[in-house]
Nucleic acid binder design. Structure first.
Lengths: 145, 145
DNA sequence: TGTATTTAAGACAATTTTGTCCCAAAACTA
DNA sequence: TAGTTTTGGGACAAAATTGTCTTAAATACA
């Protein structure tokens, strides 16, 4: 059951890593993150550019440059990231791929899937990068194989 | 939020269509299904071959041939189909893509995701092709755009 | 001013998924 | 037996995703 693209997975892991380094001030370099999380630097850079263009990150070039969250991690939720990286219709798709699936003309699994999406979105709405970052700082949780 | 590949989506829709034609006896031709559901005949054929090889369908060649469910639609559940088309580990994957994510070394969203997968699997376990086929026969639900 | 560091951006390749096509094999019909 | 229908299976193409690389632009610092 794969729900997120690799681009989104890498982006999320990287953001949580940043949130887990809470005490640090200033920018974190993409190279450091890529190395720590063992993911492709160039690939992550592209995902981060998307996040920067959509106001999740701000970036700064040159020595001691890098990226930083535009808001406190307490105010950035999974839904925000997923909306940017997967599209605004992320929680609004038919399980059977039918275009206008809805109350008008639902597919046979519409009701169940609607509820599953609602529960999922609810959790994504309240889960902040700060919460996940803390878990990682606490050691018992990991971001890398 | 895309959970199933197109191959699986097409396969599922086709199986539900077959279940919805309950009164019919004998084989249903793949060509008919593909036409009715407006999906690629060749693509569907490949998916159906997989289902045949795994005992979900039985096939018969020649005039009046086609495919048929090996068991009554009441005894075929979404989990069975998904296991064949998506793999046996379908309900066992980490949201962040980490290989051995589990109680030992969980990712920071492990607990939530575990519960979401459990709820999803529970529904897939109890939803039969018969149930979905009936909904489609009842007209209020559709399988095609 | 020149060099090193770091993100920005795009070209390009590799891989996976999706889709198309052709021919063989099986079965029926005349 | 010949011809038609239908699935089986593989080759192949197209598209999307993932991954790599190169160059440019911005910034700091000596």
């Amino acid at each position: 059951m794969r729900v997120l693209s690799k681009a989104t997975v890498y982006g999320l892991r990287a953001l949580v890593y940043m949130a887990s380094e809470r005490e640090r001030t200033g920018y974190v370099s993409i190279g450091e993150i890529a190395e720590k999380l063992n993911i492709s630097f160039h690939f992550l850079t592209k995902t981060f550019q998307t996040l920067t263009q959509h106001g999740i990150l701000e970036s700064y070039r040159g020595p001691n440059g890098g990226v930083a969250l535009t808001k406190p991690a307490e105010q950035l939720f999974l839904t925000d990231i997923v909306h940017v990286l997967e599209g605004a219709d992320f929680f609004d798709k038919c399980l059977l791929g039918l275009p206008g699936c809805g109350v008008e003309a639902p597919c046979p699994v519409h009701d169940f899937w609607k509820e599953a999406k609602r529960a999922m979105k609810e959790e994504f709405d309240i889960t902040s990068l700060a919460e996940l970052g803390e878990k990682v700082s606490d050691e018992r949780f990991r971001l890398v194989a």
